[in-house]
């Protein structure tokens, strides 16, 4: 019906999106891969020097001993943060499941940190939990000793994860609430009538039916936790020492800021590869759980 002119018209309609996307996302990925095999200081008059795998060996052997800690920090944030965000969000979703004016208000309250910029969230909590911050002034004012929320390496990482959880739980809460609506109500009723307790209904009906939602929430939270940067900038600026330096911080505020473009690009490529592999692994692993959910409905 459409013929050749139609086909060409169709092709043309994809051009604007393709141009922007290819030009500013696909080509940069190509650049990143190329620069990752070079030593380059980013100055236009200089040409990148081909160094092969040197940047990657540097990441893996870490001769100056400053990069592996960022890998650990990022890994801990991704695992502990994703676990914390999802457990709390699911708990809140079960608590706020029924729609009343009160729960609608509470949902909005749980969600509001998400509309704030991560940088501002960082500054906000730094003013509350810093050595001179509101909480420590309250503690010392009441005769207790101050707590090293942001000044002790271990505390600082824990504080940062808590702040990230505070900022991100709203998104996952909304996703869980949407997922809970899809749980077949008649099944839950039938299970209750058969004498199942609340925990049993959750374990055998609600949780399996939530499987597709859980896949989405795990993938989205892990992806967003792998690239944590702005909250670090506001809250700790990577400190104390390098206790809260994430991989994204390493790329942008260490390598790139010091004109090590080749190294920054190798680190970026590594993050993209890890993010991709992790996403696909999680989706593949969740397949079985999701098939269980389909069998339920």
């Amino acid at each position: 019906m459409l013929g050749r002119r139609g086909a060409r018209g169709r092709g043309l309609m994809t051009v604007p999106a393709a141009l922007i996307y290819v030009g500013l996302m696909v080509v940069p990925v190509g650049y990143a891969v190329y620069y990752s095999f070079t030593e380059y200081n980013g100055i236009p008059s200089q040409t990148p020097q081909w160094v092969g795998l040197e940047n990657y060996t540097r990441i893996f052997t870490d001769p100056t001993g400053d990069m592996h800690s960022s890998l650990w920090v990022t890994g801990i944030i991704a695992v502990v943060g994703a676990f914390g965000v999802n457990v709390i969000a699911l708990g809140l979703a079960l608590l706020l499941r029924r729609t009343t004016p009160f729960t609608a208000f509470a949902r909005a309250v749980m969600f509001y940190p998400h509309v704030l910029s991560a940088l501002i969230v960082g500054f906000l909590w730094q003013a509350i939990l810093g050595p001179q911050g509101a909480v420590n002034n309250l503690l010392t004012g009441s005769g207790r000793s101050a707590l090293p929320f942001l000044s002790d390496p271990g505390w600082a990482l824990a504080t940062m994860i808590a702040v990230i959880v505070w900022a991100q739980l709203g998104v996952q809460l909304v996703l869980y609430l949407a997922g809970l609506q899809a749980v077949p109500a008649d099944l839950q009723e039938a299970a209750t009538l058969d004498g199942a307790g609340k925990a049993q209904v959750f374990q055998h009906v609600t949780w399996p039916a939530l499987a597709p939602t859980v896949t989405v929430t795990i993938v989205t939270s892990v992806l967003s936790l792998l690239k944590v940067y702005e909250v670090v900038l506001g809250l700790t600026n990577g400190g104390p020492g390098d206790a809260t330096q994430t991989w994204a911080y390493e790329i942008l505020a260490v390598s790139f800021a010091n004109n090590k473009v080749g190294l920054a690009c190798a680190q970026a490529v590594l993050l993209i590869v890890v993010a991709g592999i992790l996403s696909f692994t999680i989706i593949a692993l969740r397949k079985r759980a999701e098939e269980g959910a389909e069998a339920l409905s």
């Binding site: 970026a268 993209i272 996403s279």
Partner: peptide, 27 residues
């Protein structure tokens, strides 16, 4: 083509910004 576009959802914006700066410079 759709898969090609969707793949971009897995690329963190602030990570690809470093090489994107060189594209913007060239333009």
């Amino acid at each position: 083509l759709l898969l090609f576009f969707v793949a971009g959802m897995f690329i963190p914006a602030q990570i690809i910004l470093v090489p994107a700066i060189f594209v913007l410079k060239a333009l």
